[in-house]
Design a binder for these strands. Structure first.
Lengths: 237, 237
DNA sequence: TGTGGCGCAATTGTATGCAATCAACTATAC
DNA sequence: GTATAGTTGATTGCATACAATTGCGCCACA
């Protein structure tokens, strides 16, 4: 049966849970992530936690220091700028590809996502943030290249993390309007405009954020993780 | 002291050893990589091998199938093309940055590398291949962005892997001349020319390779690994 | 002779235990 | 009172042991 096939392994579930927690700003940059506390929370042994942490470290979402454990990554301002620059460059390719694949079904997916963003705009802040990132990931999916998707995802997540360090609250507000414009340009097949809008959008997101420099001390905070751990313990996706 | 600091952990050494073996075409795409055989070879337990395999899987160099073990990745032709396209797009950024950082020391490093390439041209094939990839990595280093370096490295490695699947023998020959031209353009600060040369170079590398479709069966071959394993067992880098 | 099921061997998935490392604290000497 | 050395507690690094899964070969049966 398909349902049991799709059960990714527990490591994947734990990685995803931690990743979501980081992207939704439940785990803030600098927080320590000790193996056995996490293992206890998730109801698994340190082995699986270790694997998950290594994976997230490879993605750049956490830092792993020898004999000193893991903590949510605290990218420098420079690193943040480099990430956005790289992202901008890569998403050019996404635009080209999506335009090539454009059709009513694709357009519908994009507009469906936009609707979700509008809906969440005045609801929960974490959800808006997540949807904003997922807009770009949806575009990458529609580009039809697994390779492209892989890197857009990873860099998008890392950008999301940097925003939780450097962004002011509510800085996502105007993003929805920019997403809408991009969709319109894509729909009309105007590649140059779409590309420029995307570049402008990403620059704007970065600019809205990266000017304020916030300073937060490293803290350990596990209870916030509880809802995420519960899903894993209960065997959910 | 610095020497003891630089002792990366054994997992890193094993990952590097396997990565080198893959890039030097000692481990060909499709070869199986069983955990305990590798562990025996490298003189470590399966734990460390597993970690290394997971890391390489994250980099896209090997594939990891649940309950069925690891094998050297066999990227499809389409994936190969996507990788080169993405690489081309990203290395644009490298060019811009290197030009900004250009100075005599940088130029000297580039020319030093080119000299090594020339020297190895008629010596060992694997060394030429390695040096050709490392030219791009050197450029990324000189670009001065760790983020950029990380992705150029990874994608460069993956491209190297695809070439071992799809490239004809001796297809690296003309690469050196192209590298030389790129260095010249960088030296004169001509960004547009450099960028175009780089794009042309990468396209040429891909084209020289990706037309022949070779079909190789999956094989298990461990003895070829011996020199790599020995370095690790002896505690070398 | 071909096909279907059953069991065994091989390989991976996960937990646990012990050793090594690091950080913080205390005690002692100056 | 300060500085340094020793010691203790906590945390990671790695190996080993056991459980679960998969694939293959064998045998029965049509």
């Amino acid at each position: 049966m398909k349902a049991s096939d799709k059960v990714k392994h527990r490591t994947d579930m734990i990685s995803s849970a931690l990743r979501s927690a980081i992207l939704e700003r439940v785990l803030m940059p600098g927080m320590k992530l000790p193996e056995d506390s996490l293992g206890e929370r998730f109801g698994v042994s340190r082995t699986l936690i270790r694997q998950s942490l290594e994976r997230l470290a490879a993605e750049g979402l956490i830092e792993l220091r020898r004999n000193k454990g893991a903590m949510v990554a605290k990218p420098s301002l420079e690193e943040a700028r480099d990430l956005f620059e790289l992202r901008t460059q890569i998403e050019d390719l996404v635009i080209s590809r999506v335009i090539k694949n454009m059709n009513p079904a694709v357009l519908a997916e994009l507009e469906g996502h936009l609707a979700k963003e509008v809906e969440a705009e005045h609801a929960s802040e974490p959800k808006s943030i997540r949807l904003a990132t997922e807009f770009h990931i949806l575009l990458a999916k529609l580009a039809g290249s697994p390779v492209l998707l892989r890197y857009v995802e990873e860099i998008g997540y890392r950008c999301g993390l940097t925003l939780s360090l450097y962004a002011r609250p509510h800085s996502t507000d105007c993003g929805i309007q920019e997403h809408r414009q991009i969709i319109e340009a894509l729909a009309t097949g105007d590649e140059d405009t779409a590309r420029q809008l995307m570049r402008h959008h990403l620059t704007a997101v970065a600019d809205r954020a990266l000017f304020t420099t916030d300073e937060g001390g490293p803290l350990l905070y596990l209870d916030a993780l509880e809802p995420y751990a519960k899903k894993v313990r209960d065997g959910g996706a």
